[in-house]
Design a binder for these strands. Structure first.
Length: 110
DNA sequence: GCTTTGACTCTCG
DNA sequence: TCGAGAGCCAAAG
């Protein structure tokens, strides 16, 4: 495990920084990493070494809290539907794979 | 080591 | 407002 690169590790760290009931965007993560690799972020997540289970795991990598810049869930690996429901559970209003109160649940890593 | 791909974002029409 | 194209970056083949 953990056969990941520094880049991915950094991404995961930032993801874990996102509190429950909040979400962040790929763009913000990239900015925090000091790069514009928006795609690389998602790409790293797609090959997610932690596995999708990390989302429902304990303090793992809540990849489902990472959405597009416009608050859209875009497409996730194991079904965005499931993640949409999961986000709703956390108090985030999701409609048609889009976060309604996006600006309210958006967590800025600062 | 070069080419292809991708959970992205921005701009133009 | 919606659709298509271009740009950027990193990992995998």
């Amino acid at each position: 495990m953990r056969n990941i690169t520094k880049f991915q590790d950094k991404v995961y760290e930032l993801c874990k920084k996102v509190p429950k009931g909040k979400v962040t965007t790929y763009k913000i993560l990239a900015e925090k990493l000091g790069t514009k690799a928006y795609r690389a972020i998602g790409n790293a997540m797609n090959k997610n070494p932690y596995g999708m289970l990390s989302c429902a795991g304990k303090g793992m990598v809540p990849c489902h809290r990472v959405v597009a810049s416009n608050g859209n869930l875009h497409g996730f690996a194991h079904g965005i539907k499931k993640k949409a429901e999961l986000l709703k559970k956390e108090g985030i209003m999701v409609k048609d794979f889009k976060i309604i109160n996006f600006d309210k649940v958006l967590f800025k890593l600062r």
